[in-house]
């Protein structure tokens, strides 16, 4: 397969998913209401609200909400394909089916990220909370890699959730553990040591650290390297799991071909 064709397919899948998503009620809840409420309660509860704390909380809220969106939106894409009867067509096409899934997750999360950042900016404006971004270029690099990492995670979750009828309940279960140990709103150093070690395996922790430092004015390439490495690891796992899931689906005749 030519790389150009693969990229075109990912792009088409991403645009299709973003258009399908629009500003539906779920997106209003996840992308608009949620960051606004999280920002309001954390900023107004913090004892000392200096510049560094405001920067840290803002970045952490955006990434926390992005994780939530990954679970609820990207994680459900494969389920949606089954419901809509389009999974069989994706799997029997000329190109690998996981590229379509990846493209759709990318479209879903890119669209959500724009909405989340917009809502966050509006909340900061309304509450008159200034946030200065010292190294905007590096902060943007971190944000793009964080988005790609979220996309790969979404692909991985979509493959997991397709195996159960209780995907919604499992989505709910997965939300808070990552809130707790993902190193975003709760700094990893307040966690017990074994949990802190586990949190080092979560890419969002490194995304949060890198972006927060870039917003504060320092660039730490080591954090970016770990973030990229973990994302690559997730991608390998996602491709493997997608192969397993589709193989099982084929052998059990559950491709919704009727």
């Amino acid at each position: 397969m030519r790389p150009g064709a693969a990229l075109w397919m990912v792009w088409t899948a991403a645009v299709t998913q973003a258009r399908m998503q629009g500003l539906n009620p779920g997106m209003i809840v996840l992308g608009i209401i949620q960051p606004a409420v999280f920002l309001a309660i954390t900023l107004r509860t913090a004892e000392r609200l200096d510049t560094a704390t405001t920067q840290r909380i803002t970045v952490a809220v955006v990434l926390t909400v992005l994780w939530n969106t990954t679970i609820w939106v990207a994680g459900g894409i494969l389920r949606g394909e089954v419901r809509g009867g389009t999974l069989a067509a994706n799997l029997t096409g000329a190109h690998p089916g996981y590229l379509i899934l990846f493209g759709k997750c990318l479209g879903a999360l890119s669209h959500a990220a724009v909405v989340i950042v917009g809502s966050t900016a509006a909340t900061l404006l309304v509450t008159r909370t200034p946030v200065r971004v010292e190294r905007p270029g590096w902060a943007l690099v971190g944000a793009v890699v964080a988005l790609l990492s979220g996309t790969v995670l979404g692909t991985l979750l979509a493959c997991l959730f397709i195996r159960t009828h209780y995907g919604t309940q499992l989505s709910g279960v997965l939300m808070y553990p990552i809130y707790l140990v993902g190193g975003m709103l709760i700094p990893p150093d307040v966690l017990p040591e074994p949990v802190e070690r586990f949190s080092a395996l979560i890419s969002l922790r490194w995304a949060n650290a890198f972006i927060t430092h870039a917003v504060g004015g320092s660039v730490r390439p080591g954090e970016l390297t770990v973030l990229c490495g973990l994302t690559l690891g997730y991608a390998v796992a996602a491709v493997w799991l997608f192969g397993r899931v589709t193989h099982n689906a084929r052998s059990e005749g559950r491709l919704v071909l009727d």
Partner: peptide, 22 residues
């Protein structure tokens, strides 16, 4: 496996966050 762990971890998250912030 889903509702109970969610209730526990959600409350744990808010409690720890409350401690971190104030």
């Amino acid at each position: 496996t889903a509702l109970l762990p969610r209730a526990v971890v959600q409350t744990l998250f808010f409690t720890v966050l409350g401690g971190v912030l104030s």
